[in-house]
Design a binder for these strands. Structure first.
Lengths: 263, 263
DNA sequence: GCGCCATCAATTGCATACGATAGTCGGATA
DNA sequence: TATCCGACTATCGTATGCAATTGATGGCGC
């Protein structure tokens, strides 16, 4: 497991890494002046890289995140790594068990449905607000994003997975509500974990088409229609996750609970 | 300023039990996940104490949170304090500016309205879910909580402020949705900050009465009525905050922006 | 052969130390 | 006298070292 983590981190540090439009330096560059002048603390950089690795499903749910391993590969001290892990834990995408280390969170089926339910509510609100007052610059940004998604289709990999999620975050940002954006960002992150854990495969093509439909619905200024499209899209995403109890990988603790008489 | 922080922290540690050679407050209530585990790392303890101090409005928005000062008073190292501050920052109740230290977040008027808007949406959902399936044990817990609120009325202080907020968190918990609880917890926390910053005075009596009405509405199983009561309650809370731009304390940077031609 | 207990290695939690950064105060100069 | 500049101090960001806890391995008794 540690070997896998090692491999992934090495690969991530291998080339230039782009996060939210900003290019992050590689692991070797982390110690350079460029990073510090960009006002990115080491802790911040580690946070972003780990988050990216998790959201791109390079680090899968359950993967152990050893402080030493991460620190070694990013050429920073464990202190910086710990800071990043605490933040990720606060966002719910990393589990932090006392004295036993951190690992990528493993949402249960129950949590998965819970998250999707909340996500529908939040994003329906996003749509309602955007129909009310999304300007031309907003549409331009959305279309630009979709173009990026399409360009990433050939990639069939991490990039398109991330962009699919970031489309929804961008929608939330365009409402101008920081709090709403924050919550949407969190449910989208969790959904990435859920998909990584339960979904058979990621099919970005559908998502991009559906995103285009959402933009079109927003243009039409028809709240009901737009909301409907968004909810259908989210249903489609959830369907891809195959959240059927019988099909899904069983959660051991849930099963043993029954045998332990904990009801 | 440091003296004030010192005084507050000392007072908080006053009526407390001692654990691990360090002071813990007696009643955590819903603050943090205290009930889940007996494990109390130093960082965890600092986190809970600071959070409590902020939510009880002992530490007011804008108060500088010097790492050294906090570390000295809780008899821990700055490392533990930093961990706590990072968590609080992730929850949005502490601002963390690079190389300039932490301070209690100061929500702007705009953010305040934003938060209240989102809070209405989230808590309306809570009510809808509770009307659907709130059992007798749930009602018992709610009534018990209201009794505590009433008992704390004479206090006229921090306790009643905290309990008023925790009533809403308890409602969210009773839905059984972890994610919903998490978000409600966050908006309620932010609202405490908002009230601390803008409200003239806290009047717990009204709140308790309104909480009783909410419970009654839940009993009636009338979704529309229950939702209406809740929204009215939140309106009342917001009204108490007096979020009128003209009355509110001006935000200096906002004002200076205009004069600096940043428009 | 099987299960229990002690010792050990690995990893985390915490504290301290050091270098870096931002704000402050005093002096020099126009 | 007012302004600007430089040193200083306080505080933060990071690294490193040590203590504490956990999980594992081997030995012992049954």
């Amino acid at each position: 497991m540690a070997t896998l983590l090692y491999t992934i981190l090495t690969r991530m540090a291998g080339g230039a890494i782009e996060v939210m439009g900003h290019v992050l330096p590689t692991a070797f560059g982390l110690l350079g002046e460029a990073t510090l002048s960009e006002r990115s603390s080491r802790s911040e950089v580690v946070y972003r890289l780990l988050r990216q690795a998790i959201l791109e499903q390079a680090l899968k749910p359950g993967t152990k995140l050893s402080e030493d391993t991460i620190a070694d590969h990013f050429k920073v001290s464990r202190t910086s790594v710990r800071g990043a892990l605490v933040r990720l834990n606060a966002e719910g995408i990393v589990d932090l068990r006392a004295n036993k280390g951190a690992c990528v969170a493993e949402p249960t089926l129950e949590e998965a449905r819970d998250i999707f339910s909340l996500r529908r509510m939040l994003e329906a609100e996003v749509i309602r607000r955007l129909v009310a007052d999304l300007g031309t610059t907003g549409f331009k940004r959305l279309e630009q994003h979709v173009r990026e998604e399409q360009a990433a289709l050939s990639d069939h990999g991490p990039l398109s997975i991330r962009l699919a999620g970031e489309f929804h975050i961008l929608l939330a940002e365009l409402t101008g509500s920081q709090a709403l954006t924050r919550f949407v960002r969190e449910v989208v992150s969790r959904c990435s974990l859920i998909l990584a854990r339960f979904a058979r495969l990621h099919s970005p093509e559908c998502a991009v088409d559906e995103h285009i439909q959402i933009i079109r619905a927003l243009r039409s200024k028809d709240i009901a229609a737009a909301e409907k499209i968004m909810l259908e899209h989210l249903d489609a995403v959830e369907l891809r996750a195959e959240l059927n109890p019988d099909k899904a990988e069983p959660d051991i603790s849930e099963i043993l609970k029954r045998y332990a008489g904990e009801s």
